[in-house]
Design a protein around this nucleic acid. Structure first.
Lengths: 125, 125
DNA sequence: TGACTATATTCAAAAAACTGAATATATATT
DNA sequence: AATATATATTCAGTTTTTTGAATATAGTCA
């Protein structure tokens, strides 16, 4: 494998080296989501979330589609979520810490968010 | 999953976000190796290689054993090499670039290195 | 003990990543 | 056109990572 190929691979891992970006990918593993939904789920400012999304998109890990005012992001490839699962299992092997295994992502409608997807799925606790 | 868990996971990926460290892990996937063997294979200074090894060890990805003057490093867990393979396949899916798939690591005895393992395996081209 | 070899550590300068603040763009609605 | 809402971008200050240089440590052998 060439030096260039190793660089590509390390850039790929760099994109994954950030807690907020990993959470975003976990959310998108469940379903595509708009920026405001991600903000509500992560409890982070919109500009900040957009920055992290730009990094993930630059790295080719996510794609987006526009629908009116909203931009829906999704994983660029299903394999990505399998990879993250495998990475977690690997980390469990290395550390013995089992708490990494279940992702616990709220579904559309389960958080206080006014995006179309949340409005379409009102949940009653 | 807790914020702390996401941090652990991102630190794990950080350790993988460096071309030289990835190459080291590829070499160790084939067989344990001492520092001087890694230097010879990577064509990098010894102090630099030791620094990168320290980072990998801090992250828990590799372990070492001493034998006289030599320190032999190896993967802390076999799963790690499977994970890297899966990551490469994922990257191929994302980019279409197939060149990432074969690692091409010289074996002991195939490079100009005077470590015990290389001396024990003289290869004739 | 002293010399030699393999490896590790420390320090500092440069480069890169992170993040908050401000602001820009784009689409929809009135 | 004016307004409102969702999203994106730019800039600057701070922190972290990277990497070269110098040096320290530790084991071996004469």
């Amino acid at each position: 494998m060439t030096e260039e190929a190793y660089q590509k691979q390390s850039q790929f891992f760099s994109a994954l080296s950030h807690p907020v970006r990993l959470r975003i990918l976990d959310i998108l593993t469940q379903d595509e989501a708009c920026v405001c939904h991600l903000c509500a789920t992560l409890q982070q400012r919109q500009a900040y979330v957009s920055q992290q999304l730009a990094i993930l998109k630059d790295a080719g890990l996510i794609s987006d589609r526009k629908d009116g005012l909203y931009v829906y992001y999704s994983l660029a490839d299903e394999e990505l979520s399998l990879l993250m699962q495998k990475a977690r299992r690997c980390l469990v092997d290395l550390t013995g810490d089992e708490s990494l295994l279940q992702a616990q992502v709220p579904r559309h409608g389960e958080i206080n968010c006014s995006c179309p997807k949340c409005q379409a799925n009102p949940s009653k606790p």
